[in-house]
Design a protein around this nucleic acid. Sequence first.
DNA 1: CTGAAAGCGCTTACAG
DNA 2: CTGAAAGCGCTTACAG
Lengths: 365, 365
Amino acid sequence: MKLWTSGSAIIIPVEGARQWLETTLEKIMKATIDDVARLAGVSVSTVSRVLNDERYVREAMRERVHAAVKELHYRPNLYARNLAGDRSHIMAMIFDHAGGDYVAGLLGGAVTACSREGLHLVIEILDQPSMTDKLASFIGQINPDGIILTSPVCNDEAVIALLQKRRIPMIRVAPIRRMEQILSVGIDDQTAGRDVGDYLIGLGHRRIGHIIGHPEHGGSHDRLLGFQESLKAHGVALPADALAQGYFDFASGARGARALLDRGDPPTAIFASNDEMAAGVLSVAAERGLKVPDDLSVMGFDDGTIASWVTPSLSTIRQSTRDMAALSIANLMAVREGRLKSDAMHITVRHEMIIRQSTAPPRQP
Amino acid sequence: MKLWTSGSAIIIPVEGARQWLETTLEKIMKATIDDVARLAGVSVSTVSRVLNDERYVREAMRERVHAAVKELHYRPNLYARNLAGDRSHIMAMIFDHAGGDYVAGLLGGAVTACSREGLHLVIEILDQPSMTDKLASFIGQINPDGIILTSPVCNDEAVIALLQKRRIPMIRVAPIRRMEQILSVGIDDQTAGRDVGDYLIGLGHRRIGHIIGHPEHGGSHDRLLGFQESLKAHGVALPADALAQGYFDFASGARGARALLDRGDPPTAIFASNDEMAAGVLSVAAERGLKVPDDLSVMGFDDGTIASWVTPSLSTIRQSTRDMAALSIANLMAVREGRLKSDAMHITVRHEMIIRQSTAPPRQP
DNA sequence: CTGAAAGCGCTTACAG
DNA sequence: CTGAAAGCGCTTACAG
């Protein structure tokens, strides 16, 4: 929409009028698909087809439409599209709390991937087990094109059943157990756990403790499993009291460390299932006058920001939650568009061991 | 797909058909406003009025509608509402990166407040200065009912101008400078800065350093200002080299600490403008064999999770970013509904000093 | 390959 | 206080 002025000026008397004019212009200037069709000299059907990248459109038409779109600064109305069509162009991510590097990475990765694909991300918090009513209301209103489920909700049977019934493509991030029909993504936690065991044993440690991660998070089990495998393979004992249950938070890491160090034969190395708990171990070591890594080696997991902050800095396993989220979005789109069947598909993301200051050979090898 | 009927039974041959039936039932069962109107024996206009809590509806009607809504498990279609009406029932929050306790608190508070008000939260990341194209595209499509701007975008003139032009209610979280016409929320950073100064001087410190926060975050300036006021009021000198510029991250806190401690007359206390930087100070102290708090007192800001993790735990100022976000949502709604004019309104959230282990009187008073 | 037209499920003047 | 009807801006069979 253009304004033509010929010789004379438009006089705008007062501030209020200027605002009114602006608002009105805005409204007029907000082009619709009809405006585009008119300018391009085609039907709205054709415009729609071009916009949605459908086949069977002549190149000439395509170009004319694109030119009109550009000239009018046209942006399709999300709500009209969603009402008329069967896609919402919206992705959802569900988690139980907003904090920590782990969630932040997922969030950042998801938003970035979404905006690259022309999608929007809406988030919802489910912090009670089986809040299916809240979830039902949420997906009933948003009708997301796909949904990313993090721990612990990704292991909630009621949640999964609901989503399956509603036929919403979903992907589970680091689930406890993979399911035949459902996409999932994660690193190979078991191998990572084995890597840690091998590394610590390689340093010469023979009494190694482990603080298990949150029981409702998939990584915890697999890391423990791999860790056990490694010790077994090297003939290193792992008595029951060398294991402490943690919950991925600082306090439970500290509690676990105290329990492990109070044993008759305390460990020379502790592997905590995430960095926060490892930081808890470090604080207990400091409190007891144990030098890290000389008296005690400490290994974390995640390589979050905290791993480099603490003193000494943490040796850890790096996993990219950003990548996991980006891959989640990409695969959910592929499922929705029929490019991919979701059956039995698990995406494994690379992990990497990062050695810093908190690990070393034991004092008495 | 056809259904065969033989006698009175419906014969469903294969699995595919069962799925089809389920899907169809789902679709049938997804009630619309028409269904509600029919069941309640009123017009859709009336249903709409009841749903939107408008006046001028008889109590009897209201009850019948609510009963029908409940019976049908009716949920209004978000996209139809948004297309027909002028509200989107969507709130947006913009930030530059997803990490840290500060952002996590805002996020959690916003999502919680939204779901309480029947709104949804969509998030967008603007990590380059003046990404107005991306923002324009975003709000053009989402048309949020309100928008929460965090630092540093809340200080971006181009961003604000765009939002004003589009008449989207916005609130700025902890802006550098308040603006007459725009809502903002934050704690009284200046008073908080003064509180810290008063407290450290009260302990007996006379050589106090400060690591300034990120220059594009509003809190930084005001905290510094209040801190300066306090020292001045008590006649305590604050030479230029007792100030270091930080960026709210661990590394800049460590850098700042080194600079301050390398002075001829090193400080006995350092006030860092957030906890992450304070953790950086702690690590430098450890590295130099300085005992905290005996040789050096350290004060943080925010009371994020990290404040309790580090050893010694940090004395700090607690501010609730959750509350800020919740208040933001509430006030944006009030503006949109005309219950509140956005002019010159700033909401001050309470802050609180938390004393832990990292502060004490100086060794030589 | 293209277009005319119905329809998605609401809201909102406009009448009464 | 209530209802009939237009309209929001798209997508999608259905014809051609």
